[in-house]
Write a protein that binds this DNA or RNA. Structure first.
Lengths: 141, 141
DNA sequence: CCTTGAACCTCTAGTCACTGGAGGTCCTAT
DNA sequence: ATAGGACCTCCAGTGACTAGAGGTTCAAGG
């Protein structure tokens, strides 16, 4: 049984953030000790860890809720799962394309830099033609 | 010369967001018409487009400011550029790993789904061992 | 040239996703 | 038994927007 502080340490989140996720219903309310302190299990740790990673990847809490629902309710209508998974996959793949472009450009700059001169930085231009999928931050559609 | 509305449309942002970026100094103050309306050029459009994409990829405005500074000041000390580029590259590569894992799992679910049954959803587990780089949301270090 | 209405302006307030602090209680190691 | 670190609730503040009120400007049609 894990305390909230241990959960925070293991996932790199803040204690308050975990309580916040509970408040908005993203994390289930855990068991409590006699004295009222929260005690978590492995499933809760996995869930929190997923949330933190997905947030770091730029997913909104709404989108994350959808992804978690996929695994909370494996008996959902297949068409529903399929629609959500497809939508999230498209978002993931757009992010992948843009991240790869950024990676390439940063690498180029670093290698030029070790040669002593950075001719120019093209980080701005590099993301220009990989977009098409902006503003999918809503996920409740 | 582009109006703020055109800028918003082209980058998928809101008009207010653009004004907000100007307020906090992330976008330079553009020229104005006699009547006081903002008029932007191509460079401003590129810059805004970059900001929006980078935000969508989960970078903080602080991290984005750093990336933009790389291209604003090509005459910066090479060591400085190198340090920032390396740091950002590490962040990008961690995001890439986790996104790829998520992509794989979503694809698996979709293909199982088209077969009629989704045995189980492992989106949560899939991000578990690719982390190591959480909470690099600060970028001012 | 004049109008008219969509797009622009500033300013303030609200939202989402946290983050920090005050003031107090619990738990565990000595 | 007790000290002090971790926990509790509640509330206020931050970062990054987003919406609305109330008023001005611009450009396309008459």
């Amino acid at each position: 049984m894990l305390s909230i502080g241990t959960m925070a340490k293991r996932t790199g989140s803040k204690v308050q953030t975990i309580r916040y996720y509970e408040e908005i219903g993203l994390m289930p309310a855990p068991e409590r000790t006699e004295g009222g302190q929260r005690r978590y299990d492995q499933a809760a740790l996995d869930r929190l860890s997923f949330i933190r990673h997905a947030r770091d990847l730029g997913f909104s809490l709404g989108a994350i809720r959808e992804l978690i629902d996929l695994s909370d309710t494996p008996d959902h209508a297949c068409a529903h799962i399929d629609a959500i998974a497809h939508k999230q996959l498209k978002a993931v793949e757009a992010k992948l394309r843009r991240l790869r472009a950024l990676q390439t450009e940063l690498k180029r700059m670093i290698s030029e830099c070790s040669g002593g001169t950075v001719a120019e930085c093209r980080v701005l231009e590099v993301l220009r033609d990989h977009g098409e999928c902006l503003s999918d931050h809503s996920a409740e559609a």
